[in-house]
Amino acid sequence: MEIAMAFVIGGLYAAAIYMMLRRSIVKLVIGLVLLSNAANLLIFTAAGLTRGAPPLVNVGDVLPPGPSADPLAQALILTAIVIGFGVLAFAVVLIHRAYEVVGADDMDKMKDTDT
């Protein structure tokens, strides 16, 4: 299954990079969303995929029944998702603000804003 995931994630990265290379700022935002999801999936898959064995311990037990999925990667991704939302909001508002100042949707016209 990891192999199928690898192909999908590679495709997602390609899609995200392609969108971020576009000049339209809205496409940049879409690229960002795709990229953050792709990155989360990358970490998730790299830790190994396990079916039907969440890292939960039953009441009274000390260990989960049998092998369990990697909880560390899950904790990592969980916070990454929430932060990703915050960063996305920040980026979107920043872009919107830049659009208002420059008055153009074209990334190329934002070239001289930092000088």
């Binding site: 969440p54 939960l56 009441v59 969980l78 916070t79 929430v82």
Partner: peptide
């Protein structure tokens, strides 16, 4: 702390 849930999910 014991079942799926927690501060992040509850906050969301």
């Amino acid at each position: 702390h014991n079942e799926p849930g927690g501060g992040f999910i509850a906050g969301l």
